[in-house]
């Protein structure tokens, strides 16, 4: 009997679903075993298609994206209700990811920037009819509903998805790897790292085989969970931390901030210089995890 699955898209960019399609031939083995009951990203399903399903009738549900408005929240709660097993699919759903950096601003500021102040807008107004109400700020989905499995990654890499889906089909619970990205990164690392200079990503051309952090680039490897196969560092681009923090870490950004500060050579890099190079501290260190950090949002000044 095929396994019933549903895919719910909340506020997100569709990239995770695209990554699912990147499974290519693996899909041929997997698809016949699945019965898709809802996937409004790729076919014309409506919300009432989910609403009329009996509770707990779907075997596995995948959620992509976070809750930005009340409709997202409704769909998320509905998905939890209808599914026996709920999988958080992608970093948006698991930690909040890049769009949630909007937590640094109030929703009013954001709406007015988008609909009134953007350079291309003439006589803008904020839409208020026929649109769902925006939520004040982004919370990680797990604070709304209970999840059974998290598959982080922006997007999750196809091998990770394939492994998760095939083990779910076998009736086993997939396990996330527990080490940090550096453990699976193929770059050559020395025992002790001392940074004489911290570089921004665009400065110079990185050496092809040496650890990027050792070369002075801010690579989030030490504070990031492994599982993506170190695709970015292998291609010469520093890790940005999309897999989220490793086990037992509360705040990925704080951990990486701490790591970087202890790696710099105190005689060559002054604190002021370090701050100047990093520039956007939250955007650099908590890029993917702001809503699940210790302080998840900016404190908006009351006027």
């Amino acid at each position: 009997m095929p396994v019933k699955v549903m895919f719910a898209q909340l506020a997100s960019c569709w990239g995770c679903h695209q990554s699912l399609l990147d499974l290519h031939e693996t899909l041929i083995d997997v698809l016949p075993q699945l019965e898709i009951v809802f996937w409004h990203t790729v076919a014309d399903y409506k919300l009432h298609d989910v609403e009329k399903l009996p509770d707990g009738s779907v075997d596995v549900g995948f959620t992509e994206g976070f809750c930005r408005n009340e409709e997202d929240l409704h769909l998320l709660k509905l998905t939890r209700q209808k599914c026996k097993l709920l999988v958080s699919y992608g970093t948006c759903s698991t930690y909040g990811s890049i769009p949630s950096l909007l937590n640094l601003y109030s929703i009013d500021e954001a709406l007015s920037r988008k609909f009134k102040e953007a350079e291309s807008v003439v006589d803008g107004r904020i839409p208020d009819k026929y649109v769902p109400k925006m939520l004040e700020y982004v919370k990680p989905n797990r604070e709304y509903v209970k999840y059974d499995l998290f598959l982080p990654g922006c997007p999750p890499e196809p091998p990770l998805i394939a492994e998760a889906i095939t083990s779910l089909l076998r009736g086993e619970m997939p396990k996330l790897k527990e080490r940090t990205l550096c453990d699976e990164c193929p770059r050559i690392k020395s025992e002790v790292i001392v940074l004489k200079k911290v570089k921004r990503d665009f400065e110079g051309i990185p050496e092809p085989e040496k650890c990027l952090l050792e070369q002075g680039y801010i690579c989030m490897g030490p504070a990031t969970r492994e599982g993506c196969g170190a695709v970015c560092p292998s291609a010469g681009f520093p890790c940005k931390g999309c897999m989220g923090p490793g086990p037992n870490v509360m705040d990925q950004g704080a951990k990486m901030l701490s790591a970087l500060a202890s790696l710099v050579d105190y005689e060559s890099v002054s604190p002021e210089e370090l701050v100047k190079t990093v520039k956007d501290v939250i955007g650099t260190f908590s890029r993917f995890t702001l809503p699940s950090s210790i302080i998840p949002k900016s404190v908006f000044k009351k006027k």
Partner: peptide, 22 residues
């Protein structure tokens, strides 16, 4: 070197707090 590390961490943390509105 512990206090030099602290100095750099606090400098970055202050920036982080600033962004968080504290």
């Amino acid at each position: 070197k512990g206090n030099y590390r602290a100095e750099r961490r606090i400098a970055l943390l202050k920036e982080m707090l600033k962004q968080l509105g504290i």
